[in-house]
Design a protein around this nucleic acid. Structure first.
Length: 270
DNA sequence: ATGTCATGATAAC
DNA sequence: TTATCCTGACATA
């Protein structure tokens, strides 16, 4: 499930496998047209902001100083970026393939995969809000936006210009764990509870990076399919109070909440 | 075998 | 608010 944890983990894994190595870079699908610029160049690092992945290459052209060339990738709903056995032949749907001596990664189905210049990177950086994975444990700007908004907490958590990296699964889980009704307006959230929310987002995302999947239930390993790893998202019954989970729509996305554990649409204190 | 929905985001109305 | 893009898993027939 590509929410922020997936992208952060990808950045770590790509950096681990490829940093400071010259790579064979190709687009078997042919839709990443500027891929030639990167072939044979050195990958310096990969990093993430929210659900956006950036891979930086040091590119050297003839008679020119080395420059940094940045690839911007967004998986969207369907994208996958996975490590493959090196001997695997790329299928015709592979948008981007990276090969080192030892490792091979393939990208399929992304919403975005393109070179961007420094200005375009800057614009993205400014468009995105703070990422709980990379930013300080508190985010004054996110608080200011939430505090000033009468939009629902469900909508605000999905807003990438406020919480970069939170997706539909994490929003359901975070609101459940804090007992916040998804329709509660942002301006009704007391500051201490916002601080808790930010810290919890960071904790859960970090756990997601480690497990490489979303785990919000304490003690759930996520290894077996039977022991659920989630509290509310796509769950039938609340595992705390056993009441049926309610399915609604919030900000045009499916929302799940427990009517007993998240009863209160009014002002909430921590 | 066919249809529906999904972790996301954008453009256009 | 809707249509649209990309792909795969699951449900229904």
């Amino acid at each position: 499930m590509p929410e922020g944890h997936t992208i952060y983990r990808l950045a770590l894994d790509l950096t681990r496998d490829f940093a400071d190595q010259s790579l064979k870079v190709s687009s078997p699908q042919g839709r990443f047209t500027s891929v030639d610029v990167l072939d044979g160049q050195t990958l310096k690092r990969a990093h993430a902001i929210g659900k956006h992945l950036f891979i930086e290459f040091e590119t050297v052209e003839k008679n020119a100083q080395p420059a940094i060339t940045c690839v911007h990738i967004h998986l969207g709903l369907f994208g996958k970026f996975k490590k493959m056995p090196k001997e695997r032949e790329p299928s015709s749907s592979v948008r981007l393939r990276l090969d080192s001596e030892d490792s091979c990664w393939q990208l399929t189905g992304p919403t975005a995969c393109a070179l961007i210049n420094a200005d375009e990177f800057k614009a993205l950086q400014e468009r995105l809000g703070a990422d709980p994975l990379s930013a300080a444990p508190r985010s004054p700007r996110a608080w200011a936006k939430v505090h000033a908004s009468k939009r629902s907490m469900g909508a605000l958590l999905l807003d990438q210009s406020i919480f970069a990296g939170i997706g539909n699964v994490y929003r359901a889980e975070i609101l459940f764990l804090l007992g916040i009704h998804p329709e509660m307006p942002g301006n009704a959230l007391a500051k201490p509870l916002f601080e808790k929310l930010w810290k919890l987002s960071r904790t859960l995302l970090l756990r997601g990076v480690e497990a490489n999947r979303i785990v919000t239930v304490d003690g759930a390993t996520g290894r077996t399919r039977k022991n659920g790893t989630l509290h509310a998202y796509k769950q039938r019954y609340c595992r705390v109070c056993t009441v049926p989970i309610v399915k609604t729509t919030n900000a045009m996305r499916t929302m799940y909440h427990c009517p007993t554990c998240q009863p209160d649409r009014q002002t909430k204190r921590a």
